[in-house]
Write a protein that binds this DNA or RNA. Sequence first.
DNA 1: GCCGTTTTCGGCCCGACTGTTTTCAGTCG
Length: 579
Amino acid sequence: MKNLEIAAIFYEMADILELQNVKWKPEAYRKAARQIETLSTPIEEVYEKGGIKALTEIPGVGEKLAKKIEEYIKTGKIKEHERLKGEIPKGLNELINLPGLGPKKALKLYKELSIDSIEKLEKAAREGKIAKIEGFGEKSEENILKTIELAKKKEERLLLGVALPIAEEIVNELKKAKGVRRIEIAGSLRRRKETVGDIDILAEIEGERSDIMDRFVSLHNVKEVIAKGPKKSMILIGEGEYQIQVDLRIIERESFGAALQYFTGNKDHNIELRKIAIQKGWKLNEYGIFDKQGRMVAGENEEEVYKKLGMEWMPPELRENQGEIKAAIENKLPNLVELSDIKGDLHMHTDWSDGINSIEEMINAAINMGYEYICISDHSKSQRIANGMDEERMLKQIEIIKEMKRKYKGKITVLQGCEVDIKPDGSLDFEDEILKKLDIVSVSVHSRFKSSKEEMTKRIARALENKYVKILNHPTGRLINEREPYEVDLEYLMQICRDRKIAMEINSSPSRLDLNDIYARKAKEMGVKLVIDTDSHSVDHLRYIQYGVWVARRGWCEKEDILNTQSIEKLKKSLNLKI
DNA sequence: GCCGTTTTCGGCCCGACTGTTTTCAGTCG
Ligand SMILES: Nc1nc2c(ncn2[C@H]2C[C@H](O)[C@@H](COP(=O)(O)OP(=O)(O)OP(=O)(O)O)O2)c(=O)[nH]1
Ligand SMILES: [Mg+2]
Ligand SMILES: [Mg+2]
Ligand SMILES: [Zn+2]
């Protein structure tokens, strides 16, 4: 899949063009790159199937950029890119990636002091050379040194599951400030994106002087105050890999809706809305919609802002500039699946393999979740490190769960499952003799992630041929920030799943979220049915189902697309279960 | 470089904070 490679090249070209003070092109390159990054199809396939014309159907990609994409697919590089790289000192890119340093300052540093790397920058700053340059000063020099220190610590986006509790804690602290009427998490966190670059918080403040900004910058564990103003402040908070930037924006009641809209984003969604406002002869910013005379048209709540712009309000999960604005205008927004729609969880482990709780503890926890059914799905024998079950133990568990089914009858339906390994040759870890005794067979790849795309596709496709298979678990195998997805022809697998009525999993484990939002949407479009499962390894994990629901929502999924929103009777039909 | 029920040319979102500045450019959200 060349999507990310091409996006990276376009980003780099944008940076170089910006250094050369070229107007508009940089944003055009970046906008195209952002769209290419979020494509659900390998861009080389888009090209093979539809040529240049298909490429230009990607928003932000026109004739010129399409030609460049074609060139990259055919030759592995883009001449224009190579040419641009040659025109600019190599290390300047890493300079503009430092927060606070942009193209103008970086270029100045290069021209005055021949600085083209972070090492040289640090040296010059220590020697006091920076402060002497026109346009820089003591403060700039200090800030550069600070920024370099902070950048040395590794910088990764935080998992939603990690950032959300941190954000909630901060919100609770800020609630204690004077004059706070309302406080909301915004940004990518409110859109429930799988990872977040920072935590964005919006507070509605009543009255003139609130102490919220003072409280904010002196929160426990604040490592750096990046900016502090009357309307917006930014801090770095937390330790090591959990260190994260927090942006706080405050606003008055009459503008709260517009501000929430602005601060929720995403950026491209905002820009599209602002263009619509312009078309209507208005101006949209974080204070509201205003007409030519500066009179406020809307602002107090989000619904009103969207309504005046000619569309329905939409859930934050959809606001990614992926067609939601058009859908909202045409009244075609999906009716997104909700947490309360979920009737059961079909993937969880117990102390029979690598879970920490007993079968019965999991059952009781599921009853507490209000579920109608669950499926116990411990590992099969190949998963030695996970204490996978061999045939003998599998048969034993079947006996135990039979008892449980009886014991909990009327309270919850307990299904007998197993997370069966797909072996490297595509065969399953158990013979049909065992599989046919299970209520639900789900299958997973847990080994040889580095196979070629062809091998992996063949391997999984073969597994899906087994007539007992009902669910394909975590179909891309990624671990966010840790392991890339394996190479596989997902579209092909989706066709098989659709035709054979096999469900694909949205694994809710916060570090998996697999399928992800983009593929969930593609699955829906292809008519593949999905299940949202937690893959719990303890009773505490069952609540992560919320994260999977968020992925589904970001993938435009409705209740009908998710099989475990169905009653057990309907589920049996949908998956053709023999129970 | 992209894009179009007001345009195939001429626009391209709009505002906060900082630092070094005598009135604003640069960077970021
Ligand atoms: N209109 C407009 N809004 C912006 C711009 N940049 C950011 N925003 C808005 C939309 C963003 O969702 C919101 C918060 O900015 P962030 O940089 O934190 O982005 P976001 O939270 O979406 O993603 P992140 O996970 O933090 O990288 O501010 C911009 O250039 N123009
Ligand atoms: Mg953010
Ligand atoms: Mg932010
Ligand atoms: Zn599992």
